[in-house]
Simulated assay, not measured.
Amino acid sequence: MLRIDELDIAPPGPGEVRVRFAAGGLNPVDWKIRSGRSRIQLPLPVAVGREFSGRIEAVGSGVDDLAVGDAVFGSIPQGAFADLVVAPASVVARVPEGVPLDVAAGIALAGQTAWDALESQGLHRGDVIVVSAAAGGVGGVLSQLAVARGVHVIGTAGAGNHAWLRSRGVEPVLYGEGLRERLAAAAPDGITAVFDQSGTETIETALALGVPPERVNTIAADATLYGVRNVGRGAVHPPTLDALAALVADGTIELPVAARYPLSEVRAAFERLETGHLRGKVVVVAD
């Protein structure tokens, strides 16, 4: 039921900017909204897309810190996959020199979700954490953020992503049958916290290993069923976006692009997203 349509785009209002779309990052929440499986209920028809990057082509009154021509990235609740995106200036940040726009397109939602989830556990250098789907959009950023802070990260992923995880300082572990035994062997002195991006397997394994429920955070399952935490992204926070972009620019965080599709082939991009098993993000780019 996903189709391309033509809409009139209003000029930016007070405190808004209008951005010429360069690229947009897809996230699991996008296919859940598209399929009707999301807890986010939106009246149809829904304009899809939440992450974007591009260049500002118009600014509304009261916007003093951004200008026409600035390369920016950001996130809005819906409608980011369009030739022109109107957004509050408060939800965008500048793209640093050296960061391609298709990479910047995947920072805002996945990056801040990872940042906020990690911050919720108050970790310290030397802590040992488990991150599921550690090569995916949120998991990949969260893992690298934690490594940069001196945390020992064990990441679950398919075998094809293990070499990449090692290159980013993450100890890879295969998911699936036998996960409990593999995690116990990888963390003989115990696990400080677990961050789940994949679902019930990770949560049930963590609890079976004695990780306290308040030290398990999921964004992929119903936390209330297990009594664990459910900290995802809070309100868009431009200083956090600036910090994330700087970490991408200096190489601390690598954001792989698993696949690129032109905006006119957005349906194919969603189909690729829904197959899962990604390293990084699926991105749509301007035709």
Results as ranks from 00 to 15, higher is better:
3 R>K: 15
3 R>Y: 14
4 I>W: 09
10 A>R: 15
13 G>V: 08
16 E>A: 08
24 G>E: 00
25 G>Y: 04
31 W>K: 08
32 K>D: 03
33 I>C: 09
36 G>N: 02
39 R>I: 11
49 G>V: 07
57 E>S: 09
61 S>W: 10
66 L>F: 11
67 A>F: 13
71 A>K: 03
73 F>Y: 11
74 G>Q: 00
77 P>D: 05
78 Q>D: 13
81 F>P: 00
85 V>T: 01
86 V>F: 07
89 A>H: 04
90 S>Y: 02
90 S>M: 03
92 V>I: 13
95 V>D: 02
96 P>N: 03
96 P>M: 06
97 E>D: 15
98 G>L: 07
101 L>G: 06
103 V>C: 08
104 A>R: 02
108 A>N: 04
110 A>R: 03
114 A>C: 09
118 L>K: 02
119 E>N: 10
123 L>C: 05
128 V>T: 14
129 I>Q: 04
129 I>P: 00
131 V>Q: 06
133 A>E: 03
133 A>T: 02
138 V>K: 01
138 V>F: 01
138 V>C: 06
142 L>D: 00
144 Q>A: 00
148 A>S: 14
155 G>Y: 00
158 G>L: 04
160 G>D: 12
164 W>D: 07
170 V>P: 03
170 V>T: 04
173 V>K: 08
175 Y>H: 15
180 R>E: 15
184 A>T: 07
184 A>Q: 07
184 A>K: 11
189 D>A: 14
193 A>V: 07
195 F>S: 07
197 Q>W: 04
198 S>H: 09
200 T>W: 10
201 E>H: 13
204 E>F: 11
204 E>A: 12
207 L>A: 11
214 E>T: 13
214 E>Q: 15
225 L>Y: 12
226 Y>C: 05
228 V>N: 01
228 V>L: 08
229 R>V: 07
230 N>I: 04
233 R>G: 14
233 R>I: 12
234 G>L: 08
234 G>C: 07
235 A>D: 11
239 P>T: 11
242 D>T: 14
242 D>M: 12
246 A>I: 10
246 A>E: 06
247 L>S: 08
248 V>P: 01
249 A>G: 11
249 A>Q: 10
252 T>M: 05
253 I>V: 13
255 L>T: 05
258 A>T: 00
263 L>F: 08
264 S>R: 11
265 E>R: 14
265 E>F: 08
267 R>E: 13
270 F>Y: 13
271 E>D: 14
275 T>E: 15
275 T>V: 15
280 G>W: 09
282 V>I: 15
283 V>I: 15
287 D>Q: 05
